[in-house]
Every structure is written in C-alpha cells, then in structure tokens.
Design a protein around this nucleic acid. Structure first.
Lengths: 119, 119
DNA sequence: TTTGCATACATAACATTCTTATGTATATTT
DNA sequence: AAATATACATAAGAATGTTATGTATGCAAA
C-alpha cells in the first residue's frame, strides 16, 4: 500500500499562521480540531498540522488581537470557535500576499519561470 | 527613499538547503560569499542569506556527502569552492521537486488556484 | 596613510517555530 | 467493554534560523 508522503516538515515553518488566518477568512469561524482536519483533507494528508503546533499558535494570534474566541458547549464538551478580528482580516491579506510574493520569488530564484511583476 | 522589504524571515526556513543545492546545480561551482551575493542580486534583496546560516549549512551538506570542496588561494586569502557530488545532484532535484509540489499545494490550500496534478 | 568598506571565512549565544510526548475528558463505534 | 475519534492543553526537545562577534585580506577614498 502506497503512503502519500508528507513534506519534510521544515517547509511548513512560517506558513502556519498564514494558513490559519486564511482559512478563517474563507470560512467565517472554525475551531482548532476542525482546522487540522480541513487542512489534512484539502491537501490529501500532505500537510498535517499537529495540535502541539496549532493550539499555541491560536493562543498567540488571540493574544495579539488577530482572533477572538467564542466557547460553545457540545453536550458536556467545550468547543472553542475562532473568528478573525478586523485586525486579523487585514493581517490575513498581508500574510497571503507576502507568501505568494515569496513563492514567486522562489520560483524565479530556482530558475523555474520568468520573473513576474514582483521585483 | 523606499526600502524594498525583506520577507519575514520564518518563510525562508527550510528552503536554504534547496536554494544552495539548486544554485550549485545551475552554476557548477560557487563559494559561500558568492552564494549570498547571487541570492541577494537575483531577488532584489528580498532574500538575504546570512553568513551565520549559510556556513553551517554548507558544512552540514558537505559532511552529509552532498557537497565537496576545493580550496583556492586568491592572493593570500583562501576561498572555498563547493561543487555537488553525485548524491548532491540527485538530492538537488528531489528538493526542488518537493518545494515546487509544496508551493502548489499551498496555493491550492490558500484557494488561489485550482489544484494541478499533485494530489 | 589611515580610515572605511567589501571580501571571505568561521563560530557561539540566542530566538523562533516546529515535533513528539503526555495529560485530561467526552462521544461514538465495534 | 474496548478502541477510536473528537477536543482541548502544555512541556521537553529538535531543527533552523538571526544576531553578534572574531579574524584577516584587498581596495578605494579622504
């Protein structure tokens, strides 16, 4: 049985906040576990966000005023929903733009395609 | 005067080895300082490889058998040229493929373009 | 000629950002 | 009843950078 390989994990570094902010921008509100599953599904398990990385990141984004939370009881269990603040919405856009620009620069640097309008 | 901003440095993490291996694949042989300048020039200073990151990386790649060195005297100064070993050549290709695949997955995940043939 | 900047290597202390491991608890499926 | 999935959280450790520092040569400008 073939196991689709994950990326060597260093590549993910630095992109986690961008992924989280962008998912929340597209989906309105999500809770932590849901984010891990959504990313796994969307990437055919190539990118798996670990809980040890995600929860501290969510807490950091909240304390920086990018996210706000809402606790909802599902039976006896608390589920913590996150939504973007206004600040978070503009940060999301900036982060995505920066990442796209970075990827274009990388493709040019790796001699994979001509430079597009990002010099 | 406008200063073209660098990327927030986390993004570079994990891509340094790929950059180095690919530059050597394209250019035959290069020395450390030359690599920092080439990257700076090619990216309009958006990506600046620090020496504190580069030299340890070069040493690691050499000790892993990806690179071999050749010392050349320029006047009284030693310059250390690096070239890819055979292992390094195949690693270079793998690393670039992985990075390209990762970037495509990221663009899909960020809902920027339809998935291409990498699922 | 000496002052500063560029070239060219190197390493160590520190910061950031993950992974791995562990803990707690409820809900659902077998 | 046991295993798996859901759902949160934190701590120790690893990996990979930045910043600071050190050494030394070469060259250009004041």
């Amino acid at each position: 049985m073939y196991i689709c390989p994950m990326y060597s994990s260093e590549l993910l570094k630095g992109t986690l906040k961008t992924i989280v902010l962008n998912l929340l921008k597209d989906n309105g509100r999500m809770y932590g576990y849901e984010i891990t599953q959504r990313v796994k599904d969307l990437t055919a398990e190539k990118i798996q966000i670990t809980e040890g990385a995600l929860y501290p990141t969510l807490h950091a984004l909240e304390s920086q005023g990018e996210l706000q939370t809402e606790e909802v009881f599902i039976g006896k269990r608390v589920r913590k929903y996150y939504t973007l603040t206004e600040k978070g919405q503009s940060t999301a856009k900036e982060k995505v733009n920066e990442l796209v620009d970075f990827m274009n620069t990388m493709k040019f640097l790796l001699d994979l395609e001509p430079r597009t309008g990002n010099g």
